[in-house]
Design a protein around this nucleic acid. Structure first.
Lengths: 225, 225
DNA sequence: CTCATTATGTGTAGTTTGTACACAAAAGTA
DNA sequence: TACTTTTGTGTACAAACTACACATAATGAG
């Protein structure tokens, strides 16, 4: 099989969340194919780097971002997916706090921008399919793994968490029951700090406690919303 | 990136189930590297075939089996995982009814054999890691997708289903509650046939109804055990 | 043929979890 | 100071889960 001529690339769907909006990080391609079109950041894997290293490198090169949470999503291998020839792409799925980093376009990217997932532009390659898979994964996973916290500030008022879940799940949540449930999971620390945004009673701040979460997980107690 | 020299392969972890035993299909390698050692079936992807086609081809070539259920598991890309050089492997996860096919070794395989997942031999490459991931996926997935039926005969007594779940989940199940729950999901058809194996009251046969399952799924009713 | 053995089939009560729902407290603003 | 806005909290009812025992239909041994 020395005559195999398949190229391997990685792509990263990076989600951010801010004030009730879920957004994805996209780049405008500087070169052919699909020059000038929007695409998920990514690129070819170097011979000696791992797939994760490749994703982080490409992301940093093209967008300036450093990722918070990263997991493999799916590998897309349809022979026709890239006009240049056979390219198989391992797609990853990432989460960041958008305000924690400044996005800067460089190398293959002419521009970088956050897009609300409900207002997406036309995408290059099969990136629409990849993005769809990523959104489904995010929506599915948020109910049984505490990944939502990766999208919020370290310290957050309960209402932020609630708004994140209503946005992601696309349905209303009963505030009291939601809080009861999350508090019952016992993975949040209630801080002695309050935050006030505009009018209304100031909210207490909370913080996710990963240590406690992993302890509980080992004891077989599962996170589920 | 024309100087990328990464090879792409696929591997398939195929599970079977018979009489309280979950087993995996392994081959004994005919050639170097790892000649004579047991491994998951798989091989290099051809330039023009999709990943799924590659898996099915390799499986058929090496073991004679045709798969019942196939899904992508994970892509393993550690630079050091293959002594021949950089090989990235897309691992798949398959289910079959073992008695439905005759396994026959050929091409790269000197031998094919079902191994109980609790009595595994030493494995070539990083196949131990792959297998572990596959087992976890199987155990996880069986509680929220009706994939268990792919491991049973088309028509099966309830006790078979129950035994499958106790085996996979590694814990006892209350027979009455389990039956109540599954029947309540409304995805099984009760047939007018009975089967008797040795002594004991003959059991009614059941059959999974995929059509009904997909209907219910679209209505938002979820399968969960 | 009868009795012991084996596996299937079935209901109910108690507990736990989920759901629906409204008002007081603490801040800002006019 | 009173009006608006957002946070914080408890209870009653419904649904789901759990534990649990005995009758039924077959086989096999004596």
């Amino acid at each position: 099989m020395s005559n195999q001529s398949i190229k391997l690339s990685v792509d990263a769907v990076v989600f951010g969340y801010e004030e009730g909006n879920i957004s994805v990080l996209l780049i405008k391609r500087k070169y052919e194919p699909f020059k000038g079109e929007w695409a998920i950041p990514g690129g070819f894997v170097f011979n000696e780097e791992s797939l994760e290293e490749a994703v982080e490198r490409e992301l940093h090169e093209e967008t300036g971002i450093k990722i918070n949470y990263l997991e493999q999503l799916y590998t897309f291998g349809k022979p026709s997916r890239d006009p240049r020839g056979r390219v198989v792409s391992v797609a990853y799925f990432g989460l960041v706090r958008p305000n924690a980093y400044k996005i800067v376009a460089s190398t293959d990217a002419e521009q970088v921008q956050w897009f609300n997932i409900n207002e997406l532009p036309k995408l290059a390659f099969d990136h629409k399919v990849i993005l769809k898979a990523a959104i489904e994964r995010l929506q599915g996973k948020i109910t049984y793994e505490p990944i939502g916290f990766e999208l919020l500030d370290k310290k957050f008022p309960f209402s932020d968490l609630e708004k994140l879940y209503t946005t992601l799940l696309g349905r209303d949540i009963d505030r009291r029951n939601f809080r009861k449930k999350i508090v019952g999971l016992n993975v949040l620390d209630e801080l002695d700090e309050k935050v006030s945004k505009g009018s209304g009673r100031p909210a207490n701040l909370f913080q996710f406690n990963p240590k406690r979460y992993f302890q509980l997980k080992e004891e077989g107690i599962i996170f589920e919303i």
